[in-house]
Design a protein around this nucleic acid. Structure first.
Lengths: 212, 212
DNA sequence: CGCGTAGTTGAACTCCATCAATGTCAGTGG
DNA sequence: CCACTGACATTGATGGAGTTCAACTACGCG
């Protein structure tokens, strides 16, 4: 994805820590957030009261784009986050200009919707193993490199809420991938993909459902 | 949702029958389609080769908005469909104008993304009964009235592909709702909601998972 | 009429949710 | 320095909802 158009370059870079929500589901859309570093999760509460993680956002993503009157999810920092904040009116004006000139600046919107769309694809079908493998291939490229692997600061409970699984199943599935030698996790927040081909195969296999 | 801004009012109204796809997943986005009547399904093939119905679209919906370079799903008529077709360039120009003036014309985009988002909420958790009940409450208001109920021309296989279930489970779940007296289906393409409150209760119940 | 698609029903299996108990670790304060 | 605490992760046992497989029916259409 990379950076999108960077307007208002003079804006301050702000910081938020876990526990300090950037904006809340249902709140009127007043600002657009551009993540500079760190990870943000989008959280929606369904009508039954279930907590869903609808997306993870990384450096370069713009979130909270006003395609509705109110935000559709809460934006919660998973790690410490640096971000820029654009007022809705200014953001829309810049968008209108870019749209008029290049005719292709709805890209930012596509980028925000993308993880939501892919979540639908993921949890629609497939075994727990298939979902997890597909998820890991999705996120591993956007995580910060660290030694042989990447930093992996996502709580398993969040992964569970994103994949539509229970935390127990997430734990067992990660263990399974470890036992298969496909990944390694020297610590809870470290991830090494040892066999990327096997990981993608597990994700794409049509037989993913019936196999253990 | 209703109608969005109706530009290019002089455009021809076109017709498409089932089997004649309006645009294909992966194709470059050249046009925006505005459904005038009938039902369209959005179909994506996942990397494993699974066929997903990502959304159903109804009269008034705009689909194929260029938030990516290429369409993310194929648009297939479920019934005979009447629609208008706007060239991308013209559509973007109109969007830019409206955006600049009112600052709130990204609404069309929100409307297209909405069913995708809700699908994620639906299939993330909840029992088959819960998903089906939530789905029916979602669509029943947008279906064409017919006698005591509505016309219901959606194949069960499409519903299954939307809800992340098998056709067998869809069939059994509909039968279950019939036996409970919550709905009635005098024919395969007719639907009468007898007890809307019960339907919504079934959809929202937090206990939806463990109950039959 | 015969064919194909869609829907229906039954029986067996299985994967995942659920429940419960235990382990690990960071932070806190005595 | 070590108990204490709470959040998160781990592991096992159990049951059940939904998938899977298979056979059959209903319907539309050449």
């Amino acid at each position: 994805m990379g950076r999108h158009f960077s307007m208002l370059a003079g804006n301050w870079i702000l910081t938020a820590d876990p526990g300090h929500t950037l904006f809340w589901e249902g709140e009127p859309c007043t600002h657009v957030i551009e993540v500079q570093s760190g990870i943000v999760r989008g959280v929606s509460i369904s009508e039954e009261g279930e907590r869903h993680v609808t997306a993870f956002f990384f450096s370069g993503d713009q979130i909270g784009i006003p395609v509705h009157d109110s935000y559709r999810y809460s934006a919660e920092p998973v790690t410490q986050v640096h971000y820029a904040r654009y007022a809705r009116r200014q953001w829309c004006a810049a968008m209108a200009d870019s749209l008029r000139q290049s005719g292709r600046l709805l890209q930012s919107i596509g980028a925000e919707q993308d993880p939501v769309f892919r979540r639908g694809m993921l949890i629609g079908r497939g075994s727990a193993l298939g979902r997890m493998a597909a998820f890991l291939t999705m996120v591993v490229d956007r995580l910060e490199a660290c030694g042989a692997g990447v930093r992996f600061p996502l709580p398993q409970t969040d992964i569970a809420a994103y994949l539509g699984l229970t935390p127990e199943t997430v734990c067992r599935t990660l263990r399974h991938l470890r036992e298969l030698g496909i990944i390694d996790m020297p610590a809870h927040d470290r991830l090494i993909v040892r066999d990327r081909a096997a990981l993608e195969h597990a994700a794409h296999s049509p037989l993913a459902r019936q196999r253990a």
